[in-house]
């Protein structure tokens, strides 16, 4: 059994591109759910908006990636308005229902044959989506690989810039939540009516939180499209959103670093168990599993881990237990 392989693979994935994408989605959810208490179950729609903005602008219309990023932001803002304006005045559960339905609606629309010319149908959009970005790669052309982390030259550049984007959004969230703006959204999470009674336009703040979280999620989608040079409609299934929630809860909701810790942990668990089981089966240690089972077993383990966390440390890794001990109202 090759332990070095298990460890290096796990580490590479723990801080790799997928971790960055999920981390960004989870930072968005942290603004919406963690701080403001908005149950957005359709975060994947914002991620898809970012990915498809890149795909459509760069591939279909042959325009620049930088324009695509602006379009991705604008589309995310528009989606937030469309979802938020009718639902944010209603009880919290309405947003949850509408967002999850909307995210499926988005997926089914972008993969439909009707828009195949623009959106690529079920095959999605494949091509040199991230070329404008990869052209900026400052790494030496003969770059082989880092010692432990097995990224290609292209992936390493994505990882570096990806974590910088994560850091910038984390900084933005940190600045916001410690400000009077953050006080209001936390108040909304605790009791909307009380905040209204103090003269704050709660609806506007909820909309702002939804928009900000959506834009951060869209950046996850942009990173995805740039890194993979491909946009696939069926990657934007509802479980993406639930994995992002898992990450948020792992790290601790309403903690600035929660999504980062959560994303790394999530991929350590997922990649680590996957690589370990794969190796163990190969080495003949486990004979009741086939290599093809590994993918699913990982999620069984992840689910069990999440349940254990909720039982023994419901506040997440970073959370403050005192806070949870207080009754919510």
């Amino acid at each position: 059994m090759d332990w070095t392989f298990v460890l290096t693979q796990t580490l590479t994935q723990a801080i790799g591109i997928q971790a960055i994408i999920y981390c960004l989605a989870a930072i968005g959810l942290n603004v919406q759910f963690g701080y403001t208490g908005l149950l957005n179950f359709g975060q994947v729609a914002f991620v898809a908006a970012g990915s498809y903005a890149v795909g459509v602008i760069v591939l279909t219309f042959d325009l620049s990636l930088w324009l695509a990023i602006v379009v991705g932001i604008v589309v995310a803002l528009v989606i937030a308005l469309i979802l938020g304006i009718p639902t944010l005045r209603l009880r919290a559960d309405y947003l949850a229902i509408v967002t999850i339905a909307f995210s499926e609606l988005v997926r089914l629309t972008v993969r439909s044959i009707a828009f195949k010319d623009v959106l690529g149908g079920a095959q999605g959009l494949n091509g040199k989506l991230g070329q404008d970005f990869h052209d900026t790669n400052p790494l030496p052309a003969d770059f082989q690989s880092l010692p432990v982390l097995s990224w290609t030259r292209q992936d390493l550049w994505v990882v570096i810039v990806g974590w910088i984007v994560v850091a910038l959004f984390t900084l933005l969230v940190w600045l916001l939540v410690r400000s009077p703006w953050g006080r209001i959204v936390r108040g909304i999470r605790e009791d909307e009516a009380a905040v209204v009674s103090l003269g704050k336009n709660v609806f506007a703040y909820k909309l702002q939180a939804l928009m900000l979280g959506g834009v951060i999620g869209a950046f996850g989608g942009i990173v995805w499209a740039v890194a993979k040079q491909s946009v696939q409609p069926d990657t934007f299934r509802p479980e993406f959103t639930f994995f992002a929630y898992t990450i948020l809860l792992l790290g601790g909701a309403a903690r600035v670093f929660g999504p980062i810790v959560g994303a790394i942990l999530f991929w350590i668990i997922l990649a680590g168990t996957g690589e370990f089981l794969g190796q163990a089966i190969q080495a003949g240690w486990i004979d009741f599993l086939q290599p093809t089972d590994v993918g699913n077993i990982r999620f069984v383990l992840m689910g069990s881990g999440l349940i254990a966390l909720m039982v023994f440390r419901p506040q997440g890794i970073f959370g403050d237990r005192r806070e949870l001990a207080l009754d919510a109202k």
Binding site: D191, S197, L326, K329
Partner: peptide, 12 residues
């Protein structure tokens, strides 16, 4: 106004 059922923002 204040509320009959007090609305303290508990986790603040």
């Amino acid at each position: 106004r204040t509320f009959q059922l007090t609305k303290a923002l508990s986790r603040m």
